[in-house]
């Protein structure tokens, strides 16, 4: 008491001297795989936001004369049956793939947050009801659920995005529910009640942020999965429709020529794998870091 009474309030200088800053510590613990994954996602992000920076060609411009050109300096990924540059199409395809992946995951998370919070915070009857609903949803494979939704609401990018979101929601909902349950019983929630916080305040300021911390890593993993699913739906002709530059659709179209022109399917397929793998590597890294904290 006596010693600290006059201590100046300049805490930053003192504390940073002992602990390395957050950024430096994070860099020190980065794995090579995570750096590569980050670079790939950065490339895809640039491709999605400003594809013109990476290629000057139009993804839809056809040039029948140069159809089926194998990978060459002029066309690094080759050209397709109409002479369209595959590299350009893959670059432009990043936008719809990432958008579908992020949007689908977002839809799934929002839905899961509602269901999970209801189950985690609500009375026992609500918890029971939500759990049974989740079990029913779990009983169907996700893709089947998505197909059902598309059958009802029609083919298209929007419906397939929503469909993928719906299919992933039950998994997230379960995790959110159990996390809320464990946080609800912890000491700091009781401390907040004793301080006179309302249930709304406690949910917003204590429960939600603590759930979100773990969810962010999970969502990164989910984006990768959603990209694969969306490509699968497009491949089946239920998502993006040709001639749109979308990886799943390109795979589907190239399948016909797989024996004569491997590059039609190889490069879109490679990018589906790269995107999904990068998201997974980063997601796992985030999860590990959360655990360590």
């Amino acid at each position: 008491m006596s010693g600290s009474a006059g201590a100046p309030l300049l805490p930053l200088a003192a504390s940073t001297a002992h602990q390395p800053s957050g950024a430096r510590r994070a860099l020190a613990h980065l794995h090579v795989a995570e750096v590569i994954a980050g670079l790939i996602l950065l490339f895809l992000l640039v491709a999605a936001l400003a594809p013109q920076l990476l290629t000057a060609t139009d993804p839809l411009a056809i040039a029948p004369a140069s159809a089926f050109t194998p990978p060459s300096p002029g066309h690094p990924f080759g050209t397709d049956e109409s002479g369209r540059d595959i590299f350009t199409r893959v670059v432009y395809g990043a936008r719809s793939s990432l958008l579908i992946g992020v949007a689908a995951t977002g839809i799934g998370l929002v839905l899961a947050l509602v269901l999970g919070s209801l189950a985690g915070l609500g009375p026992r009857a609500v918890d029971f009801g939500v759990n049974r609903l989740l079990e029913v949803l779990f009983a169907f494979p996700g893709l089947l659920l998505a197909l059902l939704f598309i059958t009802i609401f029609g083919v298209g990018v929007t419906t397939s995005t929503i469909a993928v979101g719906l299919a992933t929601a039950p998994g997230y909902a379960r995790i959110i529910r159990s996390q809320i349950r464990s946080i609800r019983g912890s000491g700091f929630i009781e401390a907040a009640v004793v301080l006179g916080r309302s249930p709304g305040q406690i949910f917003r300021r204590s429960i939600l942020p603590n759930v979100a911390a773990g969810l962010f890593a999970l969502a990164t993993l989910g984006v990768g999965q959603a990209i694969v699913w969306a490509s699968a739906l497009s491949f089946l002709g239920l998502g993006a429709v040709p001639p749109a530059a979308e990886w799943g659709a390109m795979l589907s179209a190239g399948r016909t020529y797989i024996s004569v022109a491997w590059w039609l399917t190889f490069f879109p397929g490679l990018f589906v794998v790269l995107a999904a793998a990068s998201a997974t590597v980063l997601g796992r890294g985030l999860q590990r870091r959360n655990r360590e904290r």
Partner: peptide, 20 residues
Amino acid sequence: RPERRRIGAIYQDPLGSFDP
């Protein structure tokens, strides 16, 4: 709730009583 400020609490495990 509005009256809760009149009575406070401290616990055996202070760490668990803080938002991590």
